[in-house]
Simulated assay, not measured.
Amino acid sequence: MIDMSIGLGTGKILTVLALNAHHHQLCPVAPGLQDLHCMAVSVADSWTGESIAAFLDRLIASAGRPAAYLKDGGTDLQKAIHLLGAQGLASPCIDDISHVIANLLKWWYQDHPLFETFLSACGRVSGKLKQTVLACLAPPKVQTKARFMNVHRLIRWAEQLLRLSPAGGARKGSTLSKLRACLDRLPSCRAFIKRFRDDAVPLLECQKIFKARGLSHSTIAQCEPFIQAIGSSPVRREFVAYLQNQLQIAAKLGLDHIGLPVTSDPIESLFGLGKFHGTGEIKDANRIALRLPALCGTPTRAEAEQVIKISVAEEQQITGRFTSLVKQRREVLPHPDRLESLSTEQAGTHLELIASAKNRENNGKILYIPISYKETHGPQLQCQTGHG
């Protein structure tokens, strides 16, 4: 499971987590952080397909080749996996279902003539409702980045809000009349709202099933009524094509009757937790990345005791070699003459964590974390190529 996240400053965090491919055989619910092991974390000023491929190549040399990659639709990640395949290190690529559905809705609706009208109306309605007696009816907040991951929440809200204003007159000064004064152009978007809902709701019902039980012959059969209920035939056709493609990967891995994991939600949760716990006001990428491995899996008593024994001096010795926004802030703000030092920081001062190798490189910039995914519970996937 691979993804990237950002903190403050130039650092961008690349994280690789390991999930047992047989998770849905071992557990009846969607995978969580307790089911994952952090295999590698690295911070860089920027990531390209080439640099990601080089990093994964080092990880493969240390921990072995994965049965498959699970990722979102990022082009850099896609290019990296393609480059590894060209080097003879190919593994199947599983596309996260949330991003697939969001991209389907984006492909079909972003150029719809009423889409921007709907979003603008939602913004104006929000402004009119806030700081009034009707504030509880304000729309949910939807980020502009990755908008189609959450735009269905706005659709559901708008549909419910319009139900509060049925046809007919409203007494002057009544709550209904006040609400209608706030609706802006939302009533003119009723047809668009219904059309979007007819596509999004069945897709999201399928998403719930596949996230919880994985993608298999049985879960596809369970989702068939929802698939047939998708309103737009092009959207339905593209979604079926995605399912068939992923089912072929599941069959190749021997998981088509068990359930192929198709959600990368845990890694998104990991980034959220990493930015919240122990980072303080300044969300330094290196500081965040250093904590990510500890938030995965369930630590043993021996591991907890090992952490307790680490002294403050040892901790500072490890973390002191990496670029720190907090340290830079303390050094520069009281000393204006040191401003130029921010542009002359030496390269190669970012954090990198890699699961322990049998033969460790003599590289002072890399910290090795003793993770052995082979010790996890349950049967291990063995492919014909021999990698686990």
Rank of each mutant, 00 (worst) to 15 (best):
M4R: 09
L8G: 02
L8R: 07
K12R: 13
I13S: 02
L14V: 15
T15C: 13
V16E: 03
A18N: 02
H24G: 02
H24S: 08
V29S: 10
P31Y: 02
L36Q: 09
H37V: 13
V41P: 01
D45G: 01
T48M: 03
A54Y: 02
F55Q: 10
R58W: 06
G64N: 02
G64L: 02
P66H: 00
P66T: 01
Y69K: 05
D72Y: 12
T75D: 14
L83M: 14
L84A: 07
G85F: 08
P92L: 00
C93G: 10
I94L: 01
S98K: 03
I101R: 01
L105C: 08
D111I: 11
E116W: 12
E116M: 15
T117F: 08
G123Q: 13
V133F: 12
L137C: 09
L137Y: 07
P140F: 15
R147P: 00
F148L: 04
R153I: 02
W157I: 10
A158N: 05
E159Q: 05
K172R: 08
G173L: 06
A181N: 10
A181I: 09
D184M: 06
S188T: 14
K194D: 15
P202N: 11
L203E: 04
C206H: 03
C206L: 06
C206T: 04
F210A: 00
F210E: 00
A212G: 04
A212T: 07
G214H: 03
L215F: 00
Q222I: 08
C223M: 01
I227A: 02
N245E: 11
N245C: 13
I249V: 12
L253R: 09
I258T: 04
L260T: 15
P266H: 11
E268V: 14
S269Q: 15
F271I: 10
F276N: 09
G278Q: 05
G278W: 00
G280F: 12
E281S: 07
K283G: 12
A285K: 00
N286L: 05
I288L: 09
L290P: 04
G297L: 03
T300D: 13
A304L: 15
A304Y: 13
Q306L: 15
V307G: 14
I308W: 09
I310D: 15
S311Y: 14
T319C: 12
R321K: 12
R321Y: 06
T323V: 13
L325I: 10
V326D: 13
R330H: 13
L333W: 02
H335I: 08
D337R: 07
D337M: 05
D337I: 04
G348F: 10
H350R: 10
H350G: 08
L351G: 00
N359C: 04
R360S: 07
N362H: 08
P370E: 01
P379S: 12
P379L: 14
